[in-house]
Design a binder for these strands. Structure first.
Length: 683
DNA sequence: CTAGGGTTAG
């Protein structure tokens, strides 16, 4: 801008420069400042608006030094401009520093307190915020909407909803910001129904919502799994011509996606005029979390192709998708991308460790874990879970103790992972010991998952009676999962009488999981209760129709190959089939007996045996054997659980082919080597 | 000169 210079007329200088100062650059302002000093025409008001202008232009040091040591330092408006600028630039700590160092002559007003409280909210400084509140109330701002709303936000943001409500009820006047703060507060406190209730009360109060309120309501619908209401909010937005900005549309995409309406989410996403990194992330995570990992990864590529750099949200979702389908090569390349362009934070680190774990690469997970020095609880938990999943119970325990030594406090999830790790490694004494310490020392009330682990641990090692006693000591009724853990123990330790009564208990709870029903049916078969077997088989047939087809994949030299039982299209199909048949022959010579009880359809025995041979994991293994050199480890990723027959079969194959075979199914890892499986799982 | 907003890890 051109600076008007009227050095001969101080009054004209003053009026024109006040206007000029409003939008000037810091450089221009410095020239103006110099002129004012040279002409000694710097009035109180002019200095204060100059300081404010410096603040707006981003030169906060100049703003402060202009103000200090002049009579204008009592101008609260100028100080507010400085504090606001610190906030805007994302440094709430500096904002608070300026606030705390205000000269006594500058009396803070509503704006000042509002800014200070907002800075405390961003920092999570509840105590600091309360001292600001005391000063604000003393200064007479007890009923100020801005002050109270920002105080409300401080509480709501940090989970103190009780205090937030206290402030809220005694506010004489509430505007839409007040209401939207309450709505968002209840959402982040995990009380979506209260959030929706707040919105209703707002409408009754005659306050109209804007898009910010509606975003809160949409999130509440997402959390409450209320798509109907979510869709009606969507309609409300459209009918009332509210601005469908990126944030609003993104929260709608998330709402539909998280509730399984991926097609609607896609449509909303497709209609967006502007999409940013967060919108893409929401869509990608929607696919990844709904089991459509291939689609998620396709979208991830599209995002990069359309010139949007993935943010950490998109990267985490991409890693999750890679974990789901066991796509190690792509996971590695995402990891590489992160290393080149980001700092490794705990969220990204956890996602990457989990990816390596689920892709069968324990070593890479450990290496990455060792490289992250600033570890949070979830990162530790992920690594402990990783050890457990790979059958390293002792390593999980060592890691757990290391974690305690650093002063990190384990939570319910840590113990779930630890107990599961101990159970699958057969470390019974350690399992009992740590379950007890969890309750008595760490004061964690055992949840269902902990009971499942402990019952599993005991029953697995033949301590079926002890496990059964544990159930009687529980306060709540045992769930299906707990009964199932006990029942597998009964079946494998031939405690058939107890098993039968447990099977009856399970049936009463009307499970529709085929795996659970299969177990129950196998137990009845063991006790020769054939009418019950027939009854359960019928239930299985009914629920079987809802079952998705099993598929297995294997990655060879960076390419994923997917196999399903019915698939005839694979170019190497002939070769694979003859390999399977050859293996089958050798296995039988070594004592393999097909376990046709794992074929749940009514078929001839012979056909059942054939079906077992062509289970997707066996096709994948045959393909792997054909296409890799001797000694190469095979990693198979399966979407469903490996059945008992396949488990047997792979043991033999690992011996015949002299290969290490790792199978990751929907539940865990099975490491096969020399005819044994390291994971103490059974059928 | 001022308050409230979307995605992402075990």
């Amino acid at each position: 801008m051109h600076l008007p210079v009227f050095l001969d007329d101080p009054r004209r200088l003053l009026s024109s420069s006040a206007a000029a100062a409003a939008s000037a650059s810091a450089r221009t302002l410095a020239r103006l400042h110099a002129l004012l000093i040279v002409s000694s025409s710097a009035s109180h008001t002019l200095i204060s608006s100059l300081a404010a202008a410096y603040a707006r232009a981003g030169d906060l040091a100049a703003a402060e030094s202009t103000l200090t040591a002049t009579a204008a330092s009592s101008s609260i408006a100028a100080w507010n401009a400085i504090i606001a600028a610190h906030s805007r630039r994302g440094s709430p700590a500096s904002a608070l520093r300026v606030f705390r160092a205000l000269p006594p002559a500058a009396r803070p007003d509503s704006t000042t307190f509002t800014l200070a409280l907002s800075a405390c909210a961003r920092l999570g400084d509840l105590r600091g915020g309360e001292s600001v509140r005391d000063r604000a109330f003393d200064a007479g701002y007890k009923d100020d909407v801005f002050v109270c709303s920002s105080l409300l936000h401080l509480y709501a943001r940090w989970g103190a909803m009780g205090d937030a409500v206290k402030v809220f009820v005694r506010m004489p006047r509430r505007d839409r910001v007040t209401w939207s703060t309450m709505v968002a507060g209840f959402v982040s406190a995990g009380q979506p129904l209260d959030a929706i209730q707040m919105y209703r009360r707002m409408r009754e109060d005659g306050v109209k919502g804007d898009e910010v309120v509606m975003i809160g309501v949409i999130q509440a619908c997402t959390a409450a799994r209320n798509v109907r209401m979510g869709a009606s909010v969507h309609g409300h937005l459209l009918r009332h011509g509210m601005r469908m900005d990126v944030v609003t549309a993104t929260s709608l995409v998330d709402m539909y996606a998280k509730n399984g309406l991926l097609d609607v989410a896609c449509r909303v996403f497709g209609l967006m005029v502007h999409r940013n990194d967060v919108s893409w992330s929401a869509m990608i995570s929607g696919f990844a979390q709904n089991g459509q990992s291939d689609e998620a990864l396709r979208l991830f590529r599209n995002m990069q192709a359309s010139g949007i750099q993935p943010d950490s949200g998109a990267l985490v979702s991409a890693l999750l998708a890679c974990s789901n389908i066991g796509f190690l090569k792509l996971g590695r390349s995402v990891h590489g991308f992160i290393v080149r362009r980001f700092d490794f934070n705990c969220i990204l680190g956890t996602a990457a460790i989990d990816m390596y774990s689920k892709c069968g690469s324990l070593a890479s997970a450990q290496m990455l874990f060792n490289m992250i020095s600033d570890r949070d609880l979830i990162l530790w938990n992920a690594m402990i879970a990783c050890c457990g999943a790979h059958g390293r119970g002792q390593d999980a325990l060592t890691l757990f103790q290391e974690m305690n030594e650093t002063g990190m406090r384990p939570d319910h999830a840590t113990f779930a992972s630890l107990l599961s790790a101990l159970s699958h490694s057969g470390l019974v004494e350690e399992g009992k010991l740590w379950f007890g310490r969890m309750v008595n020392h760490f004061k964690i009330t055992p949840a269902e998952k902990h009971y499942v682990c402990l019952v599993d641990l005991l029953a697995r090692s033949g301590l079926v009676e002890e496990a059964s006693d544990l159930l009687t000591s529980m306060k709540a009724e045992p769930t299906v999962a707990i009964w199932v853990a006990l029942l597998s123990g009964c079946l494998n330790n031939k405690k058939l009488e107890l098993g039968e009564s447990i099977a009856d208990n399970i049936l009463e709870l009307q499970p529709d999981d085929v795996g659970v029903l299969a177990l129950v049916s196998n137990l009845y078969a063991a006790t020769k209760k054939w009418d019950k077997v027939r009854q359960v088989r019928k239930l299985m047939k009914d629920s079987g129709s809802k079952k998705m087809p099993g598929c297995s994949s294997i990655e060879i030299r960076g390419t994923r190959h997917v196999f399903v039982m019915e698939d005839q299209s694979h170019p190497q199909r002939e070769e694979i089939v003859s390999k399977v048949a050859k293996l089958d022959l050798e296995m039988r010579k070594m004592g393999y007996i097909p376990r046709t009880e794992f074929v749940y359809h009514d078929l001839e025995e012979e056909v059942k045996e054939q079906q077992l041979s062509y289970h997707s994991e066996r096709l994948a293994i045959a393909f792997g054997l054909l296409n890799t050199g001797p000694g190469t480890r095979l990693v198979i990723i399966k979407n469903l659980r490996v059945c008992g027959d396949c488990h047997d079969a792979i043991k033999y194959i690992s011996k015949i082919a002299d290969r290490e075979i790792v199978v990751r199914d929907a539940k865990r890892f099975h490491h096969f080597k020399d005819g044994v499986c390291s994971c103490r799982d059974y059928w």
